[in-house]
Amino acid sequence: MTLFARNPLPDAARAQWPYTPRFTSVNGWRMHYVDEGQGDPIVLLHGNPTWGFLYRDMIRPLVRSGRRVIVPDMIGFGLSEKPTTEHAHSLDGHAANLTALMRQLDLTRIALVCHDWGGPTGLSFAMSNPGRVRALTIMSTWAWPLPPAEFHTRIFPWRMMHAPLVGPYLLGKHRALAGRGVYLSVVDREKFARTAQAAYEEALPDSMSRLLTWVWPRWIPLDETARALERFQWLERELSQSKLPTLIIWGREDEVFDAATFSKRFKQLLPHAEGPLLVTGRHFLQEDSGPEIADLIKHFLNRLDTKENSQ
């Protein structure tokens, strides 16, 4: 059972989202993505509860820098199909959805940009398809089993938000995450409320269309019984052996995945990585520093080009 044969672009997003919508089928689900520009590909991955719109201020500058920019909407978000049963979603399934898209487009030399759940899904793709990936950019996410963050172990507000029946009520009927949740996790809240909040809310217009907003939090491992524990153990192990050029960017004001803990841990896993570079931002740092982040990625990839050309 799914909703929306074809999701309309939210009215609130129209003026800021001029990109041609593209659709394909991945694992039997209809996935929306944008594909702009030419050159080595950059793939921008969002998490919960956002969609490609999160990268609206980054697509143009990256295209202008001579790159091809691909921005998929995860199944369950944005303009992609939204399954209405929890059992349609799994971490491995979402990583496989991304893999399907990357193989259909036959992308190689990918610079993968990961945020939130775009981290575990994108990095799982990267570690299982090393021949397709050239570089990583990692922002406000994690890639190891336990513990995620102190924030995620607390009952108020995190565990309460997605507790049985409370999740469907609070995040479904009352869209707490797609609305006020993102609002609380940006620095310039007034600007966000004026220019972006409605675009996130309208992309998840009905209670059941918001299912993944309470399902995803349940996949964060909190103890040894967690469903994705082995996947995260594998991911951490693979990353610790990875030599992929990597850039770590973090929001200075991030309270969900605080920079001192999480960017430092990624730096320990990937000691060759550049950064962590701190920008203005809470968890959804692209909302406050999109153009600056695009600039950091552009220069990172230009340095990589120069290095490769000199070898």
Binding site: I155, P157, A176, R180
Partner: peptide, 17 residues
Amino acid sequence: NPWTVEDFDRTGRLYRL
């Protein structure tokens, strides 16, 4: 315990239910 109606109410207030 450890689930409390106080935490439930606080969560509701945080999200302005």
